[in-house]
């Protein structure tokens, strides 16, 4: 039987461990933010690129016939949701790069030699960092879209947008961190990012609805995780939010907003479960 003193010691040890865990996660996250503030070019580029897309693509299709897009939406408003998701997706896809550079330059060894309460703190720090950056970038795009007259989703809609982005960012960050540990170097990681980025954008409903696409591309778009993030956000921009309403008319059936979020949740969990053995092996 456990004595009260032992139980109290255990509780105190657990408290200590939690406090140490927080200390190490905050320290590693702080390092990433210091790097960002001293080298802000990636953050700025990450905001500028979708803004340019928003302005140029928005202008390109500004004279499209009214009623062409679902719900009579303007192309700028249609595009806004796609670019918000694309921004978050691109940022999260790059999440593995700092980790890869730490591996290559030996800084990871400094972290691994330290008596971390859990080596998953290294992953948590990356997730916190990249999630914060993606959200900041996405909010910048939303504000710009608002200034360009493409609408604002309202407070509840904004919460839905942030929740959707969080789910997508978790999933893609897991994928990127997995690649950062699995691939041999940053050249290979950048190559994969380069190959995945734009094709996934074009094979989603970011730039055009499924009804505009040839059958095979429609199928691709309908199973593309980006689409499951884009459509609830687009619905939030379109009007009063109802998660039970259909947001995606896919070739295989109709998908509601809540179903999109569930799919993204499942994807995030599945990817973290999938990369866990790899992280355990690499960080053992």
């Amino acid at each position: 039987m456990t004595s009260p003193i032992t139980a109290s010691q255990q509780s105190s040890d657990q408290l200590n461990r939690n406090s140490e865990r927080i200390q190490e996660i905050l320290a590693m996250t702080k390092r990433l933010f210091i790097q960002l503030f001293r080298r802000p070019s990636t953050l700025i580029a990450g905001i500028l690129q979708p803004l340019i897309w928003l302005v140029l693509f928005g202008a390109l299709f500004s004279n499209a016939p009214a009623g062409l897009l679902p719900g009579g939406m303007s192309y700028g408003r249609f595009l806004g949701a796609g670019l918000i998701v694309f921004t978050a997706f691109s940022g999260a896809l790059n999440a593995g790069l700092p980790v890869m550079f730490d591996r290559e330059f030996g800084f990871l060894n400094r972290l691994l030699v330290a008596p971390l309460v859990s080596r998953s703190s290294i992953v948590f720090a990356s997730v916190i960092y990249i999630t914060s950056i993606s959200l900041v970038q996405s909010i910048a795009i939303m504000m710009m879209a608002f200034l360009l007259g493409y609408g604002w989703p309202g407070l509840i809609g904004m919460l839905l947008v942030l929740l959707t982005l969080l789910l997508l960012v978790f999933a893609v960050t897991a994928l990127s961190l997995g690649m950062a540990f699995a691939l041999p170097g940053h050249i290979e990681l950048i190559a994969v990012i380069f190959v995945a980025n734009l094709p996934l954008l074009f094979a989603s409903t970011a730039l055009a609805p499924i009804s505009f696409m040839p059958g095979w591309l429609g199928w691709l778009a309908a199973i593309n995780p980006l689409t499951f993030a884009i459509e609830p956000i687009r619905a939030a921009y379109a009007g009063p939010l109802n998660l039970n309403s259909v947001v995606l008319h896919a070739p295989y059936g109709e998908v509601t907003g809540i179903q999109c979020l569930l799919i993204l949740t499942a994807l995030s969990i599945a990817l973290f479960v999938l990369i866990r053995p790899l992280l355990n092996r690499k960080l053992a």
């Binding site: 200390q23 190490e24 905050l26 590693m28 702080k30 400094r110 972290l111 330290a114 008596p115 309460v117």
Partner: peptide, 9 residues
């Protein structure tokens, strides 16, 4: 050094 100190709690 501060980072190192935090990693060693």
């Amino acid at each position: 050094l501060r980072l190192q100190g935090d990693l060693y709690h």
